[in-house]
Amino acid sequence: MAKLTLPAEEWMYRGHAACPGCGPALAMRLLLKGLGPRTILAIPACCWTVIATPFPTTALAVAVLDNPIESTGASLAGLRAAADALGLADVTVAGFAGDGGTADIGLQALSGMLERRTDAIFVMYDNEGYMNTGVQRSGATPQGAWTTTTPVAGTRRGKREPKKEIMEVVLAHHPSYAATANPAFPEDLVRKAERARAARGPRFLHILAPCPPGWRFSSEETIALGRLATETGLFPLYEVEDGVYRITRPYGTLKPVDEYVRAQGRFRHWTDAEIRELGAQARAGWERLCRRERETAAVARPPPIPLTA
């Protein structure tokens, strides 16, 4: 009998309303294993608004406050300020927002929270589009992906612009801890959630969350695709603590992106040349990341910045 590599306790209830094979559902389940029961979760309008099931039921065994789609960062500031004012010790204040609620409409409040050094964790679960409303394009949708608002028809071949690099935006605010994670690597995700919980100041997690209906793949492939996203270098796993980079996945050489692309209906129209181009981008991104890891390894940590809400 193998030892459990994850905490046994569950803080997500079964019976939730996620689609079969839902990446965001697994991301939440794993995240809460790392954050624990003293978490207050701010959730904006997103898939999880619905996944958490209608009143009077809830799929989350923690305190949860809903907020409109654009204001998660501000909600975290208010929760942290109240927790401090009321002397509620050992509370973990965390937000769980989709890519739209983080990188598009939620960007302003996120930036405000990071800039003010709000002592809270902002988690973006990235299913690369507005999936709850039926698969529309977001800033986090990859270039060339089909969505209902970036059709493959006439002269159009899916989204024309590259995916917004939210980690770059976040890191420009110098958070105390930021990491990418992927539910296909549960131990890594839970460990990063634990590290985020233990740190102080503004913290950010970018979790890739494969979406079977939105990405057009069969529900059993969620984990396989998640693994490929990381092993191809398209979504490398790393953490940045006080400016110092550390890569946690992948190890060794990158896999070709072909299998990842071909498994998803949203890329069905791609040519071999387009796939090769994506492979080149993945390698370039990976090399940039490796370079940063080398360059920041020797850098002394900056003095801590005082915390406020």
Partner: peptide, 26 residues
């Protein structure tokens, strides 16, 4: 890896399916 928390482990570590919750994602 179960997104629905539909698998429990019995005392010996064998998986037990929670039929009420399993959506059959595969």
């Amino acid at each position: 890896y179960c997104p629905d928390d539909a698998i429990e482990l019995d005392g010996r570590g064998y998986p037990v399916l929670v039929l009420d919750a399993c959506k059959g994602c595969g």
